[in-house]
C-alpha cells in the first residue's frame, strides 16, 4: 500500500519538529505544564505519523532501538533516579538538586531524570502497541 505523496512530504518535515517539541515539553515540565508523560506521547505520535506514511518496518529502522528495550531502559532510568537518594542517606525517591553556576544558575535534579525515564517508557509502550497493531 502506497500512502499519499503529500503525507510523505509532510511527515518528513513534521517528524523532527514533533520530536523537538516533545523534548521541549519534557524539559519545561517541572515548573510549567508538560513533563515526561505528555512529551512521550508527542514523540510517540511522531513515530505514529512515520509508520502511517512509510510502514512499520521503516519505522523500526528509523527508531533504531527495539521499543521493548526502550521500555526497559525507561523504567530502569526512573528506578535509578529513585535509588540515587539512597547513596545520600535519604529515603527512596527523595528529590536531589544541584545548581550549575556555569550555566546561569540552572537547577538540575533527580525528578528530571525520573521524567526522562517516564518519557522513554511512554514512547516504548505506545510505539510498540502501534507497530504491533500495524504488523498483524
Amino acid at each position: 500500500m502506497k500512502a499519499s505523496y503529500l503525507l510523505e512530504i509532510a511527515t518528513r518535515r513534521l517528524t523532527p519538529l514533533l520530536l523537538l517539541f516533545s523534548l521541549w515539553a519534557l524539559l519545561r515540565g517541572h515548573n510549567a505544564p508538560g513533563g515526561g508523560f505528555i512529551g512521550g506521547l508527542m514523540a510517540a505520535s511522531a513515530f505514529g505519523f512515520y509508520s502511517i506514511s512509510f510502514g512499520p518496518t521503516a519505522t523500526r529502522a528509523y527508531l533504531r532501538v527495539d521499543p521493548f528495550m526502550l521500555i526497559g531502559t525507561g523504567v530502569a532510568t526512573s528506578l535509578f533516579s529513585g535509588l540515587l537518594a539512597w547513596f545520600f542517606g535519604k529515603p527512596f525517591l527523595t528529590g536531589l538538586w544541584t545548581k550549575l553556576d556555569w550555566a546561569g544558575g540552572l537547577k538540575l535534579g533527580t525528578p528530571l531524570l525520573f521524567d526522562v525515564g517516564v518519557y522513554l517508557t511512554v514512547i516504548g509502550v505506545t510505539v510498540s502497541l502501534l507497530l504491533h497493531l500495524e504488523e498483524d
Partner: peptide
C-alpha cells in the same frame, strides 16, 4: 520496606534488558 518491592522490579528489568 522498599527492598521487597524494588528487588522484583530490578530482577524483571535485568531480565528484559
Amino acid at each position: 520496606l522498599i527492598l521487597p518491592i524494588v528487588i522484583p522490579l530490578i530482577t524483571a528489568l535485568a531480565l528484559v534488558l
